[in-house]
Amino acid sequence: MLELVGIGRRYRVDGGEVRALADIDLVLPKGSFTALVGRSGCGKTTLLRILAGLESPSEGEIRRPAQAGPLRIGVVFQEARLMPWLDVRGNVGFGLHGRLPRHETAARCTAALDLVGLSAFAGAMPGQLSGGMAQRVAIARALVLEPEVLLLDEPFAALDAFTRRAMQNELVGIWQRRKPTVVFVTHDVEEAVLLGERVLEMQAGRIVGRENIELPYPRDPTAPEANRYRRTILARLMADPAAARPEPAALS
């Protein structure tokens, strides 16, 4: 379990200050799937970066039970961010290299490649992959770490609709099998409803609404119940006048 208490983040921009996040109080139960949804610039990526340890909060803290060992976190970014000088297998094992016995790294990479359906491409170079394949490599790279927390920042935004749907299903399958705590950032309400056990709505650096999606997996995004959730969330996100103000460039 992770608990965020009073998390805020300020940036200094041209002498002034911009608030990217404010008063984020949030509990992420172990094994839960949380979708963060909001328009670009609402602070959702900043929140994810803070969870990933890529940025420090200006105020507040992240609490977790005093258990042993550091938290294993896997992150998938919007772009695949593969190392162009490594082949697919090398990229998948990137975070394990030198940390595990070689045969164990190899075994985990093989399993992860299997999971994302890229076993046949283990020797391919990133330049030879399509966008969807590259993103699957990035997911495998996060999964080999056997993360307790899996953070995804609009991982499928750049993919075509068909690939995106397939990858969404794969992600749900992986989550159900391994049960990491997932935080999934997206600006797509449909995607949030399709994936999240719980959808948090963000606006201007704050969590302004939450909705528990009481639908069984695998979900059908076109089902009437799913549409009801979409309509509710979308209506709330569109209604807030605060959201209409221009976003500072520093936030995204």
Binding site: A52, G53, L54, G74, F77, R81, M83, F94, G95, L145
Partner: peptide
């Protein structure tokens, strides 16, 4: 050097020398 690749090393828990050797240099 692409800062986004350095992020990948950071989330993997790499320390500075490892980021230098395995991301920045290549």
């Amino acid at each position: 050097v692409d800062r986004k690749l350095i992020d990948v090393g950071t989330v993997c828990g790499f320390a500075r020398p490892e980021i230098m050797l395995r991301i920045v240099l290549p």
